[in-house]
Design a protein around this nucleic acid. Structure first.
Lengths: 145, 145
DNA sequence: TAAATCTCTATTGACTCGATAGGAATTATG
DNA sequence: CATAATTCCTATCGAGTCAATAGAGATTTA
């Protein structure tokens, strides 16, 4: 399961994607629009900025913007920041690989083999789902209203 | 990531699958063979039994056995017991579904849409990986030694 | 110079995780 | 029937994580 932090991050970034191309957006406004506690969001945005997903402007009339185009920010990118690797074990993680201490032979480990398939399947999906595709979904639905 | 408990469970069940058809196996022996702390394993096996994956025999010469054929116990079954739902959010979980409090419309939620695809992809893989396929992998590799 | 805003670190309480302990219940066996 | 062997169950522990809040510091604009 995703953490609350992860869900908040997704909501906030979708809001920012909808305002892409505009002036930087203040934390307070993002919090309001995304329905996220303001001080908590502050920390989340900070981390997303450090990981290159957001860009910020300090001081008066400052705020946050996406650092890349919505189509270049995937759900996988976001989740990796807030919740860590997509993989179910370190030995099948691309972004945080490390060998199991007790593993005799990675090449023949039955558990690893299964978890590797799972990781690839999950990553394929989450890397193809981007902020751009998310806002398309949203706009499509609001058109119906 | 899987919990330690989850990894232990997978190891233990693979051991039990290798001894499938034999007499019940004692916790102490499973612990030894799977490399899991004995008392911790005790709790894990208990839970797997309550969830219908294992069968136990109490008292002298008692022990644990698989409750079903290895081909009918999937990695998904096991992980759901030790680590909960495969889904990344409750609103896309089959086994532990519940609606997001703040969600206005599930049908049009962009986050839900993406996470649903992820869940399906993960579940497809983990449901097809079984204890039977795991021990085949193992036997194949030991033949080479 | 002052106001507005992001930045950073600390703190809190509740919960989870991994592990251990120990007694209760059950069963086989001599 | 007594005893030993085994699973069953619940409690406990320390360390860590999670969600949230707080508040002082740094930066920028007007």
């Amino acid at each position: 399961m995703l953490s609350q932090k992860g869900r908040y991050a997704l909501h906030a970034l979708i809001v920012l994607a909808e305002h892409d191309g505009e002036e930087p957006m203040m934390i307070a406004d993002i919090a309001e629009e995304a329905g996220v506690p303001r001080k908590f969001l502050e920390q989340i945005l900070l981390e997303l900025r450090k990981r290159g997903i957001l860009r910020s402007q300090r001081g008066r009339s400052g705020g946050y913007q996406l650092a890349k185009a919505p189509k270049d920010i995937s759900f996988a990118d976001i989740i990796r920041v807030t919740d860590g690797p997509l993989a179910l074990a370190p030995c099948v993680s691309v972004t945080a690989y490390h060998r199991c201490e007790d593993c005799e032979d990675e090449k023949t480990c039955a558990i690893r083999k299964a978890l590797l398939l799972a990781r690839d399947a999950t990553a394929d999906v989450l890397e193809s789902q981007t902020l751009a595709s998310a806002i398309v979904t949203r706009r499509r639905s609001s058109r119906k209203n």
